[in-house]
Each structure stands twice: as C-alpha cells, then as structure tokens.
Design a protein around this nucleic acid. Structure first.
Length: 220
DNA sequence: GCGACAG
DNA sequence: ATCTTGTCGC
C-alpha cells in the first residue's frame, strides 16, 4: 500500500488496518524497551528511538534520522506525520526492541487506530501509547497517589486510562497500541516512570531528537 | 451549528 | 510541536 497523501486516503488506511490490532498480552515482560519521539523545526524534523534495558533502564542503543515533513498535523491523522521517519529510525537499531513506547495514543482514537497502534501493526512489535493530554473520550480524575488510575471511556468502551505516575503530578494517558493488554500497559508505564511524570523512554527519545535537530545543519 | 482537538 | 524568564520547592 502506498503512503497516503490526503486525509481521505489516510482515513481509509486506518479503517483497513484497525482490525489487525491485538489488545492481548504476548510473552513475559520485555527486555529491551524503545522510546520514540520526533522534533520539528519548520519543514525539518528529527526522529529518534532510544532503547533501554528493562532492568535498570540503562540505554543500550539509539538511532536518529533527519527528515522533512510530508504530512500536516491533523488531529486523528497524527501517525501519518511521524510514522515514516520513526520506521526509518527503528531500522537503524542494532538491538531490536520488544516494546515500543510512543508519544500519543493507541486505540484511544476516533477510529481506534492512533500512532501506537499504527507502529505496532506495521512492525508487529508490542506497542503502548503514552500521551500528555487527552484527545478523545471522557475520564475521571485518578487518585493523587502514584499508581492511581481512572478509565478513559469512548463510546461506552474503555479505551485507555489516566495514570498518575508520580504523587501529585498531572496524569499521563495510557492506551493499548498493539499486542498488549491495558493492565499490562499501565504496569509497564509505571515501571518506566520511577522518578518523573513521563517514562524514561519518552524522556530519552525527546532529548535525543531535540538535540539532533539543533545540531543539524540549517539545510539538512 | 460551535468548539475542541495526540504532537 | 513551538514561542519563552523568572521563580518556587526539594
């Protein structure tokens, strides 16, 4: 299938691929966990993937690829802006991750196919979506303690959870991307966020793509 | 109809 | 996403 260039084509792709999403667990806890993020400067972008070891959260691999924007930011079609560059970055890795932690949503999406689901289905790797703000659905406020959660409901269906990763901080919004269950996704996010609001995977990828972008030549 | 709307 | 200083708190 060729990469869509219009909103109508992109929506058609989502409608076709959404049925491949698997919201059940596969295997034990992952050993290598990847954080993925993209930074922008006008038309330029840098996509980064950082791989951390589950035990200790130490970095074992990283990749950054420069690129250019090929799709505008449209709520609901966010994946079409970031997926090509992120797949290219994943290809550069020496250590293949067995879990992807993405910036954005998985099935907490108007068509149940956000960025994390898209990357998960295209790679076959279990994927989780971790967003910093809500996009769709209604939710209740989780308790103030670390580990507290509240359902994120869309059309009467639980599509994710607001998760308090640290005492008193704003919650993050976790949803299933692919090949994982929501309870497991929540547990994984809490494991990956022992000190800060955001998972270490997200923080590492964010720092990397941001630094790579400002380090690149003005015309790269 | 109007506003809100992952990054 | 990005534009952006100082400031409060551990």
């Amino acid at each position: 299938m060729h990469w869509p260039t219009t909103a109508a084509e992109a929506i058609a792709v989502q409608e076709e691929l959404r049925h491949q999403v698997d919201a059940t667990d596969h295997g034990p806890a992952p050993r290598f966990v990847a954080g993925l993020d993209v930074a922008y400067d006008g038309d330029r972008l840098a996509a980064a993937v950082v791989v951390l070891e589950w035990d200790g959260l130490n970095e074992v691999d990283r990749a950054v690829v420069p690129g250019r924007t090929t799709f505008p930011y449209v709520p609901g079609l966010f994946a079409f802006r970031e997926v090509p560059a992120l797949l290219a970055a994943l290809d550069q890795l020496t250590t293949p991750p067995d879990l992807l932690v993405c910036d954005g949503f998985g099935i907490a999406h108007p068509r149940r196919f956000g960025l994390a689901s898209h990357l998960g289905v295209l790679t076959g790797i279990p994927a989780i979506g971790v967003a910093k703000t809500a996009f769709v659905g209604t939710l209740l406020e989780p308790g103030t303690a670390r580990g507290s959660t509240a359902d994120l409901v869309l059309d009467g269906e639980v599509v994710g959870a607001a998760v308090r990763t640290q005492h008193g901080v704003k919650p993050v919004y976790v949803s299933v991307g692919h090949r994982i269950s929501l309870p497991t996704a929540i547990a994984h996010v809490l494991h990956l966020a022992p000190h800060y609001r955001l998972p270490e995977t997200t923080r590492a990828a964010d720092h990397l793509c941001r630094r790579a972008l400002t380090a690149e030549p003005k015309n790269g």
